[in-house]
Nucleic acid binder design. Sequence first.
DNA 1: CGATGCCTTGAATCCCTTG
DNA 2: CCAAGGGATTCAAGGCATC
Lengths: 380, 380
Amino acid sequence: MNMILPVTEELGRSRPLAKREAPTWTLPLDQILMGDCITEMARLPAKSVDMIFADPPYNLQLGGELFRPEGGRVDACDDDWDKFDSLAAYDDFTREWLAEARRILKDNGTIWVIGSYHNIYRVGSLLQDADFWILNDIVWRKANPMPNFRGTRFTNAHETLLWCAKDEKARYTFNYRAMKALNDDLQMRSDWVLPICSGGERVKGNDGGKAHPTQKPEALLYRILLACTKPGDVVLDPFFGTGTTGAVARRLQRRWIGIERERAYVKVASERIASTLPLDESAMQTVADKRSQPRVAFGLLVESGMVPPGATLTDSKRRWTASVRADGSLACAEHSGSIHKVGAALQGAPSCNGWTFWHVEQDGALVVIDALRQKHLAGL
Amino acid sequence: MNMILPVTEELGRSRPLAKREAPTWTLPLDQILMGDCITEMARLPAKSVDMIFADPPYNLQLGGELFRPEGGRVDACDDDWDKFDSLAAYDDFTREWLAEARRILKDNGTIWVIGSYHNIYRVGSLLQDADFWILNDIVWRKANPMPNFRGTRFTNAHETLLWCAKDEKARYTFNYRAMKALNDDLQMRSDWVLPICSGGERVKGNDGGKAHPTQKPEALLYRILLACTKPGDVVLDPFFGTGTTGAVARRLQRRWIGIERERAYVKVASERIASTLPLDESAMQTVADKRSQPRVAFGLLVESGMVPPGATLTDSKRRWTASVRADGSLACAEHSGSIHKVGAALQGAPSCNGWTFWHVEQDGALVVIDALRQKHLAGL
DNA sequence: CGATGCCTTGAATCCCTTG
DNA sequence: CCAAGGGATTCAAGGCATC
């Protein structure tokens, strides 16, 4: 079965293509293809997408029911789509979709795969077998994981992501400066502390419960897409689920293609993405060269949505304003850079503590961004 | 070549062995076996060690070390190895030493393997292929990693450890309470923040430089041995290097066996371990695991008059009450039976720990009956 | 309106001894 | 071998009601 659901209007700028790359096909951009991931991938043309983000079944192999100490039952991920007859069956499935992924990916494109210890060693090994070249393994350290209720193991508090190029020589995209800016002017490390997806971000089903058992946080996709794609790049997600990849891609003005088998998830994802708005141009500017050197601890607040890209900051007396860009740097008419640098430049001062200088308007009142930082710190 | 170097005197208490386990062999305890790891492991008896810690070659693919199936080192200037051959050779080598490890390990023993993204996906996959059962993957988050100098990737700031039992049903050792105590009374998580090995701990060679390129921090082994072995247990390290495993094992009063092929490392490790002192008895005390405490029947407290027959028990919020019968069972309007069964029935829960659920009123305050049990155990 | 406290929940390979 | 039953076991967030 193949059903193409157009979700968004055309957006993003068209990028000039080199002669050799001129495609003879048209990609189903910004759409969800409903159907089996391998079948649908097989219909897509070779070397056509810039990035693949894949959140495949983990093959959890859970036993019986698990109860919490106070008696509650753990709502396990026991869906049929996560069940495989054997490790060999899981390997066959993985080999197959990885082969299609490799075919579809541009030569300088990269692939991200997320998993847990149940499956990630299979996936990593098969990625290497398929001649993918691992660039990093990334650890998502969950700020608020589920505890181990029986006291039998260490709290399983992380998941692993693999980031690979098609081969050792590939010239992949890595927005080093944007990542450094997002991390308080320190190199972004291979371990990322992020909360799990909950609260308002978690998509609810008709029954009020979670629409999907394994929805990923937008902050995770935000960092991945900001790090490894450019605006207008095409991102394919063959295990689309509730469409986190599509929502973040649209927000960051990337193009996306989703593949999803379950009709219910397709519906949920379509509605979700349709209600997501792309960032405007000024927010989309990322640090391009050394001179802008933003010094921001601030990026984490941007990433987590506490201060959304595009938000306007002002000083306590509303004499100046500046807008927040996607990588946590600020821009106003004459200046751009870190919260500290722009604050200093506007005041004509040699230096400025941006944390106490800048404020955001919240519910009609000005809130100093240092308060938000404290809130964030307290939350971690 | 096989050279046995006795390093330490006998230490640790002898553990009583069940009849069936009575060994007909003698292990080379607290010694370094000099030679190839697979050859030396092949000499050790089956099901004889409680834990294996392995820090195998990482197969960095930097034009550096490659290993033949038999474990021999490939001459670094041999350029004929293509990627497939090197991965396959690494897999063969890994399969071989894992097979020996599995043979030597007791049925309830566990194995730890550390690696980086270069090799850990091969190792993890082959562990599963060899029917090992992954209990956790642990992320060692380096507090002070080497930066990525070229700005082409995320800072590679962690290594991964795999902790496995021999099969799904194995009853492995996990000192839950000790780990919780080590982590400020919170469950120990799967991500460990530890500094890399440097400073005075780093063993120096004759030239003043580091004696070994990949010496692991003692804190890492300390946590592993404290978590997953008991005093007197035997730990095998087939890639002994500078002997961190031996040094920490001796400190924590565990027995150890090291295998190392390089004479220089054997010498360094011997001297290092000889100068390491075991902790004294008082320092060796760890938080007692409740599971290992002797059982006390609730009836015993009734018998001794600590909780008189006819006394009324209630939960912490006084939502339910029940009365104590002469035989130590409870009764309320609708249910009767053990403290556990009645507690479970009243709550509609699948199970209940009556010891922590029920309270007695003493001097106007509620006292949990588990406290009375502890008092009884203490002989008060 | 803010502070407090209770309830719910999240990709989970989640017990062990005795009869 | 299985069945029964004792009794060991939870962290951080968000939502919501209450004070």
